[in-house]
Amino acid sequence: MALLLAGCSGSSLGSDSTPSGGPIRIGLVWPQTGVYKTVGDDFARGWQLYLDAHGGKLGGHEITTTVVDEGDGKQATRTGIKKLIEQDKVDVVVGTISSDAVQEVQPAATAAKIPFLATGGRPDNLQNLAFTWHTSWQNRDAGAALADYIRTTVKGPVYAIGPDYKGGWDQVGGFVDPFVAGGGKLANPDGKATFTPFPATTNYLPYLNAIPADAKAVFAFYGGANAIDFVKAYAQAGLQAKVPLYTGGFTVEGAVLTAQGAAADGIYSSLNYAPDLDNPANRAFATAFQSKYDAIPDLYNVTAYDAALVLDRAIAAAGANPTSASINATIGKLGQLDSPRGQWRFGEQHAPVQPWYLRQVRLDGRGRANVVVQTLTTLGQ
């Protein structure tokens, strides 16, 4: 992806009272290394697809973009967001996949009064959301969307497992809490979900071999390289044909599904997008994406694409000389958006109110894909 780098110091928009009318500077915080690098690549593709379709402009204005690496942990993100705000003087921040990264970017952007459009998971402990907007999901939603379905479909206890960091706690907890509250039983020996060291764990066989014999299903959340290792280990442990695996959709999404190969066959997941959704926006998006990249689109392409869509609409509505403040104000007034995932809007907590789908990994003629089985529910706030 060709990125235009900002070449001068000082804010391109100037102060709120004296806008300069220059290009709008956008800082992109996406993983370029580490466990989630493939997700960063997916974000870049979706973002660029929207820009290509709109002459490289957003809201009719020229933009410049600067990318910093989210990496695997908080330190890389902390360094990156400091650079974007203090050195590059960005007017808007877009990006992040992990909860650790969000917890570094969000307070920094809020303190600087810069809109932050997050393209990945939102942890459940953020404060002061005035400048924070997620075009993606709340971490607990993927598991919550599946809880009642699994409880009423699986006849017996379910084993729950995920990575030991904020994103993993939220994703797995989103399933466990409503599942147990509804009368479901965990198969974990201590009655609590199992968490594996993050990101260091690469061998999941010891954990999988410890799953009790009475477990009738497994719920898991992993992403990036960890998801590849986990799903392959699940098949290697002989569980694939015996114990149904349900996941937050991120575990079988995008490049990781290709890398997982046949080990992913049959896995059920919940997510707010699938490439075979039949709506006008997705038909146009999927066609354009496959034409440009010769690949099936995924959710990460969509959340970055939608971040560009949100900014396009908000900047256009912010007047001839948009400011960070005026862009932020117009984001909150956009209303319903026609997205490849289906129509959605920002809720009171600036997270998407959107449908969630049950999907299953199947061969669909072109390769493996997450095929929609049914709509599960609508979540968000």
Rank of each mutant, 00 (worst) to 15 (best):
N125Q: 06
Q240R: 08
F175E: 03
V29I: 13
D148L: 04
L49G: 07
F116P: 03
P212W: 10
R341Y: 06
D52N: 14
S136W: 05
T375S: 14
Y234F: 08
G34Y: 01
K185T: 08
I211R: 12
G56M: 01
N188T: 03
A2Q: 13
A284M: 05
I85L: 15
D164N: 14
G80L: 05
G224S: 08
V90Q: 04
P23S: 02
Q32G: 07
L311Y: 08
Q374T: 15
F230P: 01
A318Y: 06
V372Y: 01
S136R: 04
D124A: 15
I315R: 07
P352E: 05
I114N: 03
A225D: 09
G71C: 09
A235V: 09
V35R: 15
A237L: 04
Y159A: 11
G22Q: 02
A118S: 15
L117G: 01
I315T: 04
A233R: 08
I24L: 10
A316M: 00
K37S: 14
R122D: 11
S20I: 06
F131C: 04
G40N: 02
A147C: 13
V372K: 07
R345V: 12
T33E: 01
A210D: 10
L376R: 08
D72N: 15
D364T: 11
L257F: 00
D41E: 12
T258I: 08
T38N: 10
V68G: 01
D69L: 03
G254A: 09
K292F: 02
L126R: 01
S324P: 11
T119E: 09
F219H: 02
T110I: 05
N226I: 05
V243K: 04
I267D: 06
K216F: 06
A262N: 13
I114R: 03
D190K: 04
M1S: 13
L379S: 12
P199L: 02
Q354Y: 10
A101W: 03
G95Q: 02
G248Y: 04
F285V: 08
V371A: 09
A160R: 12
L3I: 15
G120I: 01
G59E: 02
R366N: 15
L311R: 04
A187T: 11
A307V: 11
T64I: 01
P355I: 06
A308K: 11
Q106H: 09
E86Q: 12
G167R: 01
Y300A: 14
Q354D: 11
Q290D: 14
G248F: 04
S324C: 08
D298I: 00
W137G: 06
